[in-house]
Amino acid sequence: MEPAPGPDQGRVRRTLLPWVRAHLAVLLVLAAVLGSVVGGAVGATAVSRLGSRPSQEPTGRPVVLAEGLPRIVQRISPAVVEVRTSSLGGRGIGSGIVLTSNGLVLTNFHVISGASPAGRITVQTGTAATSGPVRPATLIGADPKADLAVIRVNNASGLVPAPLGNSDRLAVGDPVIAMGAPSGLQGTASFGIVSALDRLVRVAGPSLGLAGQGPPVTYRAIQTDAALSPGNSGGPLVDQTATVVGITSAVFEGTSGSSIGVGFAIPINDAEKLVRAMVVQYGPK
């Protein structure tokens, strides 16, 4: 596949909402937080699986009727969270997907990269009408090259895991819904289609504080025309079977700096393989 258009034709921008860009190196985050996780991994609560999957794969390609969209949103909403970071350098907002009832959450690495050893990560569940409590979270693992990270909501129980789908079954033209907190507007859903598959996307690496941006991140993505805005990063792209098929991660901007209706998501099949490598052990859910 051809790479995403170059700088002279527009640019691909992450969909994290940076309130104030952090001025502390992300490398400190990984050295301090991930180092402490390795030491305590043996005693960590184990999980048996990530999210939940239907007992059987859909046998056909169901047609989404207008009246079916609210049911899809209602099913997925409890598993979508807002992820906030704060540090001495500033604050940021993104989204995340609940993987397990005991608090594992999947998001983009660039969503949590602004946190520093002196900062914090928090997670909030809820919708536009009803917001849940703000809870502290801890970084469990991260893969900057894949732009993915797993965090754990501290002392969590009873969270609603997202049903994970099969991104390999997607076809161009399939309807999808993007959910998250664009511009901090929690509980937002937007509708569109899969406009391309296996799109090679290249985006700038997360900011490394005073050192500037990190190495570029390249991955093959699901392309969609569902509206994405800053703050959608880390949220789910949901298919017509009400399962998560992608992690929304970037949006393409035209030469004027405005969105042209092209967004990108990391396929859930690719993300799940990396997540399993990040989490040390699996046990009872």
Rank of each mutant, 00 (worst) to 15 (best):
S101T: 14
L99V: 04
G94E: 01
V105L: 00
L65Y: 13
V42I: 09
R14M: 10
L99W: 09
R71E: 07
S101I: 13
P78K: 03
S77K: 00
F109R: 10
A66V: 14
N108F: 02
L16H: 06
L28P: 08
R91N: 14
V12D: 09
V33M: 08
A79H: 01
L104E: 07
G40E: 15
L104R: 04
G51V: 00
S77R: 04
V42F: 15
S48E: 12
N102T: 11
V73W: 00
R11A: 00
S101N: 07
V37M: 07
Q74P: 04
A25H: 15
S101Q: 15
A31H: 14
G94F: 05
P18Y: 13
S36C: 05
V98P: 02
R13D: 08
V73R: 07
R21K: 12
T100C: 08
T45I: 07
V64T: 11
T59K: 13
V98H: 00
E82M: 12
L34N: 06
L88Q: 07
A32R: 04
W19P: 03
G90P: 02
A46Q: 09
Q74Y: 12
T85W: 05
L27R: 15
P58M: 05
W19G: 08
L34D: 04
P62G: 09
F109K: 00
S95P: 06
L99G: 03
A41E: 13
I97G: 04
S36I: 04
F109D: 10
E67L: 07
W19A: 11
V37F: 00
T45W: 02
H23M: 14
P70K: 09
G92Q: 02
T100K: 06
A22G: 15
G94C: 02
A31Q: 12
V64F: 15
G68D: 14
L27K: 14
T85C: 06
T15H: 05
S101V: 10
R11E: 06
V81I: 01
L27E: 15
S48C: 13
V80G: 02
R61C: 03
S95Y: 00
L17P: 07
A66C: 10
E67V: 10
I76L: 07
G10Y: 00
P58W: 03
G92Y: 01
V37Y: 05
R21W: 10
T45Q: 08
V29I: 06
R91A: 14
P62K: 09
R71A: 00
S55D: 02
L50R: 09
V80H: 05
R71P: 00
V64C: 09
V38R: 12
I97W: 05
V20L: 13
G35P: 01
P78R: 10
A44S: 11
F109T: 08
S87W: 13
I93C: 08
G90D: 03
E57A: 14
V98N: 06
R75Y: 03
S87M: 08
L17V: 03
P62D: 10
L99T: 05
G96N: 11
L34T: 01
Q74K: 12
L16F: 09
V81G: 01
V80E: 04
H23W: 14
L50I: 10
L69T: 14
P58G: 02
S86A: 13
S48M: 14
L104T: 01
R91T: 13
P54R: 15
V105S: 03
G68V: 13
V105P: 09
S36A: 15
H23E: 13
E57F: 08
G39P: 04
S52P: 11
E82W: 06
A41Y: 11
T107A: 09
